[in-house]
Design a protein around this nucleic acid. Sequence first.
DNA 1: CACAATACATAGCATTGCTATGTATTGTGG
DNA 2: CCACAATACATAGCAATGCTATGTATTGTG
Lengths: 221, 221
Amino acid sequence: MARTRDPAVRTLLLERAAHMLRTREPLTLRSLVAGTGVSTMAVYTYFDGMDGVWKALRQEGFTRLAARLTTVAASADPVRDLAALGAAYLRNALDDPDLYRVMFDATFELQDPRAADETLYALVQAVERAKDAGRFRDDVDPLELATQSWIVGHGLASLTATGPLPPETLAHGIPLLTALFTSAGDAPDRCRRSVEHGWQRLLQPSSTPSEQLRSRRDPHR
Amino acid sequence: MARTRDPAVRTLLLERAAHMLRTREPLTLRSLVAGTGVSTMAVYTYFDGMDGVWKALRQEGFTRLAARLTTVAASADPVRDLAALGAAYLRNALDDPDLYRVMFDATFELQDPRAADETLYALVQAVERAKDAGRFRDDVDPLELATQSWIVGHGLASLTATGPLPPETLAHGIPLLTALFTSAGDAPDRCRRSVEHGWQRLLQPSSTPSEQLRSRRDPHR
DNA sequence: CACAATACATAGCATTGCTATGTATTGTGG
DNA sequence: CCACAATACATAGCAATGCTATGTATTGTG
């Protein structure tokens, strides 16, 4: 019983905001709508102001990360998969460092916290598969080990993608994860091979993940 | 041959800025000088604008961190000292999370990068002492292991002090550092005891470190 | 001691996000 | 089918932001 709002406008603005963040253009209310034909008020209709845009960007970051992690297929070597998940996590942060940063900006609360949990869940599952395969001890708590892997991955991502350490530092991921998984019961030599294998993924830069994501969300286009 | 500027004004403004950051007051040009008697132009005289204030804050963060780390005295157990340094690092981040955040905001470049190196150097020294004590293997590169410890510490600090994980998550520091130091050659049981011992420091909140620092920098007062 | 260089106060400018107001559009009940 | 009302959205203007231009006061130095 009223004029309806066009969801395409929302995705257009959000996509544009993400692009501006990626290209390091200053993201202001007026620069966001400039050239799009929509007026500044549209931002208030769809996002309730610039804070809402940042919140939506934060959510978008977790959505893209979750989508990226699902591209890591489960193989016969679950420890390799764990390292591959870590590598995918880092690849995501490196490809869009500013988006990664807002993901961890607690200034704007997350509308849907499940998105954040989902990323951790992928790790938990891999740890469980490693336990099933006998690679980790039975007393290993999957959630705890997954969290610890996340802490290592985030430390690496934060210090290299958006921090002071050079990209070569990423190589530290191999000894760090090897040490962690070895402490969980895996045999040192085998563990190192698995981690190195899974870590390979870091070297190959991904092919425009945002394009893939868009076509997934909007099949018609 | 001209009017000289008063260094006390600079430290006053910087201290005030750090305090406002700590108490989460919005840090704006006008709010910074409000009530101090100095005009907005003073900020330009001493900091060349608000960007300079943020740069100075970043530097101040590293200065305070370095001072905090030096309070960790070298003991007979260098692995314990390594864990104690990590705990001091986390204590610093927890006591002033917003200052910790700007420390890693690459938007504002650091005037004196040595301040950042200094924090890492404390870790490197502890690793070298651990090697000398025969706790770590001879082929361990002190800088590498120190960097890896930093990555773990920063991951923990970032996810708990300014991130989504609850404070209990800090307990993960013990298994993480134990795994790392064990992989460097330390005996697992002994390593764990040392790390747990050094980690104790985290529980005792520190007594107003900014006061200590001020009196150190300005002995007269 | 005069002068010039510097600190710093005042005023005003462009830009920011936001709100108040007016207009256009469109789904819906009769 | 159509009047109405609810909603989208365009326009204009406001307070607050950081910054600059300009004027004045102060003080070290030749």
